[in-house]
Amino acid sequence: MSTLTQSPHETPRPQRSAGPARTLTAGRAPRWSRPAALGGAIVIGLVVSLLLGWTWTGFAVVTALAFLLGHSAWAYVTAGPRHALDTFWGTLVWLAFFLALVPLVSIIWTVVSVGAPALLHPGFLISDMSSVSGVADRATVQRGAPLMGGIQHALIGSLLITVAATVISVPIGLLTSIWLVEYSHGGWFTRTITFLVDVMTGIPSIVAGLFAAGIMLTFFDWANGGISGGRQIMGITAAIALSVLMIPVVVRSTEEMLRVVPNELREASYALGIRKWRTIFKVVIPTAISGIASGITLAIARVVGETAPILVTAGVATQVNWNLFNGWMMTLPVYIYRQLMNPTAPAAAQPSTDRAWGAALVLIIVVMLLNLAARIIARRFAPKTSGR
Results as ranks from 00 to 15, higher is better:
Ser7Cys: 05
Glu10Phe: 08
Ser17Pro: 07
Ala37Gly: 12
Gly39Pro: 09
Val43Phe: 13
Leu51Asp: 11
Leu52Lys: 14
Trp56Ala: 12
Ala64Phe: 10
Leu65Asn: 05
Phe67Trp: 13
Phe67Thr: 05
Tyr76Pro: 03
Gly80Lys: 09
Gly80Phe: 09
Pro81Ser: 12
Leu92His: 11
Leu95His: 07
Leu104Tyr: 11
Ser106Lys: 13
Pro122Val: 05
Leu125Trp: 05
Ser130Glu: 11
Ser133Arg: 12
Ser133Pro: 07
Asp137Ile: 06
Arg138Thr: 12
Ala139Gln: 13
Leu160Tyr: 03
Val167Arg: 06
Trp179His: 07
Leu180Ile: 09
Val181Ser: 11
Tyr183Phe: 14
Tyr183Trp: 13
His185Val: 13
His185Arg: 14
His185Glu: 15
Arg191Phe: 08
Val199Met: 12
Thr201Asn: 15
Gly202Asp: 07
Ile203Gln: 08
Ile206Tyr: 05
Phe211Cys: 10
Met216Trp: 08
Thr218Gly: 15
Trp222His: 12
Asn224Phe: 12
Gly225Glu: 08
Ser228Ala: 14
Ser228Arg: 06
Gln232Pro: 03
Ala238Asn: 01
Ala241Asp: 01
Val244Gln: 01
Val244Asn: 00
Leu245Asp: 01
Arg252Ala: 06
Thr254Ala: 05
Met257Trp: 02
Val260Phe: 09
Pro262Trp: 06
Leu265Ile: 07
Arg266Phe: 05
Arg266Met: 07
Lys276Met: 10
Phe281Val: 12
Lys282Val: 08
Ile285His: 00
Ile285Phe: 02
Thr287Lys: 02
Thr297Gln: 00
Thr297Leu: 13
Thr297Tyr: 02
Arg302Asn: 06
Glu306Asp: 07
Thr307Ile: 09
Pro309Phe: 02
Leu311Arg: 01
Ala317Glu: 02
Val320Gly: 04
Trp322Arg: 13
Phe325Ser: 10
Val334Ala: 02
Arg338Cys: 04
Pro343Thr: 04
Ala348Thr: 11
Ala348Arg: 05
Ser352Asp: 08
Arg355Ala: 06
Arg355Ile: 07
Trp357Phe: 14
Gly358Tyr: 01
Ala359Glu: 04
Ala360His: 02
Val362Lys: 00
Leu363Gly: 02
Leu363Ala: 05
Ile365Asn: 04
Asn371Asp: 10
Thr385Tyr: 03
Thr385Asp: 07
